[in-house]
Write a protein that binds this DNA or RNA. Structure first.
Lengths: 106, 106
DNA sequence: ATACTATATTAGCATCTGCTAATATAGTGA
DNA sequence: TCACTATATTAGCAGATGCTAATATAGTAT
């Protein structure tokens, strides 16, 4: 039926599907940030930072504005925060369950 | 700092990052389903269905139980539904904005 | 203009993903 | 046991993704 809708959703999800980009979005939840901050904070090369930010831009997950020589990034949609929160909870609980299962063996 | 947490989150997100799997999860929101239902419903080959289900299983997004010769799949975590809902809304609004932008040109 | 900083883009390569076709495993019933 | 259905797994290939190094673009300041 509406297979097209899932294709659109998948485009957004794919943009989220990398630890670096998840961390970038987490940093942006604290507020607008200069592109130049991610490299030092996350120990990434300049090109790498720029490419990951480009993925987020193309998925319309972030907005940008120029401030002189710098480019400022911010979250485009507050609902992204909800998604990130829920995902974090799911992942945390999965981890806790895995630990519990391991302890049961020992 | 806790880069490991983002790696775990990304594992979950990657499992969501395909239109076929998004649609499978959407179908599972309606209730438990036999693996055999997805192929006919989504026009996919048997191996393809099984592989996508394996991705969802390995990410612990679905639970399975055997019922005779069939394997029944269900959502492992209700919070997945929230994520899917929010993603659907984000994607829908992005699409609406894109359409509006196009109409502005014309 | 030149020099400088910040970003973005490109090229090339290695790795990952997703598909189809083929094979293997598991349960059921004659 | 054999035959049958449902699932899962594997092999091989095509296409996507992510990285580094190099190059291009944009804005600022002298």
């Amino acid at each position: 039926m509406e297979e097209e809708g899932y294709r659109l959703q998948a485009r957004v999800v794919k943009a989220l599907a990398h630890p670096t980009r998840l961390q970038m979005l987490a940093l942006l939840r604290e507020g607008e940030r200069c592109a130049c901050e991610f490299g030092p904070l996350m120990e990434l090369g300049q090109a790498n930072v720029s490419q990951h930010l480009a993925v987020l831009r193309k998925a319309h997950l972030v907005d940008t504005r120029r401030d002189g020589v710098r480019v400022m990034y911010s979250l485009a949609d507050e609902r992204t925060s909800d998604v990130l929160d829920t995902l974090a909870h799911i992942a945390r609980d999965q981890f806790a369950e895995a630990v519990a299962a391991l302890e049961e063996v020992a």
